[in-house]
Design a protein around this nucleic acid. Structure first.
Lengths: 356, 356
DNA sequence: ACTGGCTTCATAAACGTTTATGATGGAGGT
DNA sequence: ACCTCCATCATAAACGTTTATGAAGCCAGT
């Protein structure tokens, strides 16, 4: 077995490779008789087409890449299921490309991976981070459509993007905190490379100033340990602890909670805590965590849908002999609303029913 | 740009495609002069090789697949980082293939995916579940090496496998519970398709019988909601609650904890709880969870290493014109020890230091 | 001056498909 | 009897690489 080619099928049936090919692909021009013969023979000798040869001959691109940094954030799992859902009925292979080594973003790896994606003539890319200008240009040159999720596309072209409405989400967070009367906030946040940072921060700042609250922004690397250490250093240099801690995402929240537990700080009595991104265990923590839910599954679904649409339009255009470049419509830029899941870590006394 | 082939480089430099090819790949037989010329021209016109054509011509296989069901379990993330670590310095693309749709395992999807893997001439497979006999046979026929992780390989060939030593792990769990004097255990567990179930159950049963404890095995589908409902139904049909709940893995634990909270059952006073698989939030739950840690990162690393070794030996053999079939040595079957992380949900009063 | 060997390169065939082009034969019309 | 048309198929070229084969040029050794 193995290494069975279309020519073997041709030999066995006595039909030409042309007929075999058409029969296997279900194309017209083959008599029902021959077709049956071919299918039987193919099954018999265990023929399985060689995708590289197919792709080469018919210039087709058959996989889609999701570029991701630091998969440790469980938010990516939901995003993935959304993407898979949207793409399920198409025949693409979706591959996930991690540009982080041991959890930290690596620009050289980004270069290598983009190179690799082009080498394998990837049909389209969904990226969760703002790629380098060189790499976006490279992908554009090779007519590879890009959809940005929860990350800002470069200004240049009007790339499609689907993100949480982070600005309004942050306003919701800020408003809720203000309702509790808290006026002293600490926003623990990841670097600007993850561009959601920008709108989130802006929202928090605007909410603070409109409620006469003070907000301190504390930047940490995008992982648990950095968050722990950054917050530790901050608290060591400050005489009092802030009334509220807003954690920019899950890994940071995790690091912060570790420190809070070590320090014996009580939530929400000493310090209220609120996080971005819902996660499975949030309601089981002590106290249950108030959290801004991103609906990353919906984001993934939307991203998958728009990418599929763009690619399909692209191949249609190519069939008509028109330009290969993807066309990006303005309506491909979408924002999905977040929602605040109120539990107890903010100071509320909700007894949340189990949803669903 | 785009669509630049090796022939364009050839045309620009005035050298033959032979020379260009050798120059680009760094092979000997090209003068330093020509080589430089080629590299310059290639960079100039933005040439990027077509992987499909390369793969076709030199029968090479350049990607490795990790087959997975229900990625919702965060254990897969650690596994992945382990695999990536082991494979980082090789030039394979590792793709992850999910055979679950909306979180539930789908046999037809398994078939489609295996088919697809063969079509793209995947170099090797790491699978986290026992594939169907047909699919294992298919992969074997096409000389695709398979490494099983945390899942039982079929008896037939001596497939490589790396798993937790689940039997001894379960003994540890059982012994610890017995030390607390608990004699009435409930083991909430997923179906046998995930074959770790078998050793885990055997260990728990043996531990129980050697300590004169009673153990009830309660099977649930492998997701949170099923666990919730299964446990709910069980408790409804029973007059008293068991002294101990052992959760077979994380999703089941999550479902169980939800129900426990809804019922107002106190841990560990009313019922002790112990889970399989460490996870980030385990120490922050109320109470902190005692858990059997699998070290899935090490498992991934080992799996990646052995797969790499097998493939490399395979291509060596092929170069010498020998058989293409992968050779599986007995020492490729490995078990890695689990360890018990004792916190409070079992009834201990440990004050765990933050590790690392 | 001739041979042999080495280096550097070009030519063309191959990898496994798809498909443009055209051949064949039979049915149907006049 | 001839022509046309259509369905069915075969032949061969293409996709973008790598590589087997061998040619050309040069140098050294005789």
């Amino acid at each position: 077995m193995g290494k069975v080619t279309i020519r073997d099928v041709s030999r066995v049936t006595g039909l030409s490779t042309y007929t075999v090919s058409r029969a296997l692909s279900g194309a017209p021009g083959v008599s029902a008789d021959s077709r049956e013969q071919v299918l039987a023979a193919a099954r018999e000798i265990g023929y399985i087409p060689n995708r590289a040869a197919q792709g080469l001959r018919r210039g087709s691109r058959d996989s889609i890449a999701v570029i991701v940094a630091s998969t440790a954030n469980s938010y990516y799992l939901d995003l993935m299921t959304g993407i898979q859902q949207a793409l399920r009925h198409f025949d693409w292979t979706v591959i996930i490309a991690d540009v982080a080594v041991d959890g930290v973003y690596n620009p050289r790896l980004e270069d290598r991976i983009v190179q690799r994606l082009i080498e394998s003539r990837t049909a389209g890319v969904i990226t969760t981070l703002t790629l380098s200008p060189e790499n976006t240009a490279l992908l554009a040159n090779w007519d590879v459509p890009i959809v940005f999720v929860d990350s800002a596309p470069p200004e240049s072209a009007n790339f499609p993007s689907v993100t949480t409405d982070n600005y309004n989400a942050s306003l919701m967070v800020g408003d809720h905190l203000a309702e509790h009367g808290y006026r002293d906030w600490l926003f623990l946040v990841y670097p600007r490379r993850w561009t959601t940072r920008i709108d989130r921060e802006r929202g928090i700042r605007d909410a603070a100033s409109s409620h006469n609250a003070h907000v301190e922004v504390l930047e940490s690397e995008n992982d648990e340990d950095s968050a722990f250490r950054t917050l530790e250093a901050y608290l060591a240099g400050s005489e009092r602890i802030p009334r509220v801690l807003i954690a920019g995402n899950n890994p940071l929240l995790l690091g912060a909670l570790r420190l809070i537990r070590d320090r014996g700080i009580r939530i929400p009595a000493d310090m209220a805590v609120i996080g971005y991104d819902e996660f499975a265990w949030a309601s089981l923590l002590d106290p249950p965590l108030t959290v801004l839910d991103e609906d990353s599954e919906a984001i993934g679904r939307l991203a998958g849908q728009t990418l599929a649409q763009i690619i399909n339009e692209q191949v249609e255009a190519a069939k008509r002999g028109e330009s290969q470049s993807p066309v990006y419509r303005p309506e491909y830029r979408r924002q999905v609303a977040g929602r605040l899941i109120v539990r107890r870590s903010c100071g509320c006394h909700v007894d949340n029913e189990r949803p669903r």
